[in-house]
Write a protein that binds this DNA or RNA. Structure first.
Lengths: 117, 117
DNA sequence: TATAGAACTATACTTTATGATAGCAAAAGA
DNA sequence: TCTTTTGCTATCATAAAGTATAGTTCTATA
């Protein structure tokens, strides 16, 4: 009769809190895709809109605002003919690289895994 | 006048699809936390409930079902007094380690980053 | 027989998230 | 002046996520 090892709160807490913190900011259908789109360089509203297929103006606008508030995106207005607004990643959002890479890898793996059934 | 490098669809597609695939399965407030709770070994319904603070029975039940359907959790019924049901990670969900680790790291970083303002 | 613990399920909501559609401001240029 | 382009915002509608609370089933045991 072996006693299995099942750590309680204390042990998980160290993981759970940061993960929730991260999810609070990144959760949703669009935030990560938007960040990915900006990975290859700053882009304008319309460009992101085309890149992130399926997103509506309303959502894009809202998500960009959220991301800006959280310091993940920097918004710059250039006062030219048709107003030019560009969005770029911040150093902080660049630190998401590892998250994005691992998520991408896993996404590929998961698709394979599902097709095999 | 330099021409900035702004790849279009083609270049992002390789990243965006897998990331969406991953998000489709992992999105939401509870899935990752539940998986984390199971990282330290199989657990029973009630144990997960205590570990993942704040989740209701209904949500936990639903999320576990979703995770099972997606092959991320294995449910085992032991026919004992008070029925004993245990949930455990599958090899597939274990491949999420890297995602979880990087998310955790980033969560910590993000919290620091915010407090500094 | 009554009770208790484990794991859910049922019902009824409330709150967010996401969508669809239309409209607005500013300013160059026809 | 009218049109066009860009980057939004407003409004309304629906779907999905999440919450609260109570009830059900099964069976060992008091």
């Amino acid at each position: 009769m072996k006693k299995s090892v099942k750590p309680g709160h204390s042990e998980c807490m160290g993981m759970l809190r940061p993960i929730r913190d991260a999810l609070d900011v990144l959760n949703g259908k669009w935030k990560l895709p938007i960040i990915v789109a900006l990975t290859f360089g700053e882009k304008r509203f319309g460009e992101i809109s085309k890149e992130v297929h399926g997103i509506t103006d309303r959502m894009l606008s809202k998500e960009l605002r959220d991301l800006e508030i959280n310091g993940l995106v920097k918004r710059t207005v250039e006062d030219a003919y048709p107003v030019k607004v560009t969005y770029a990643l911040t150093p902080h959002s660049k630190s998401l690289n590892e998250v994005i890479e691992s998520l991408k890898k896993w996404g590929i793996l998961h698709r394979k895994n599902i097709l095999q059934r």
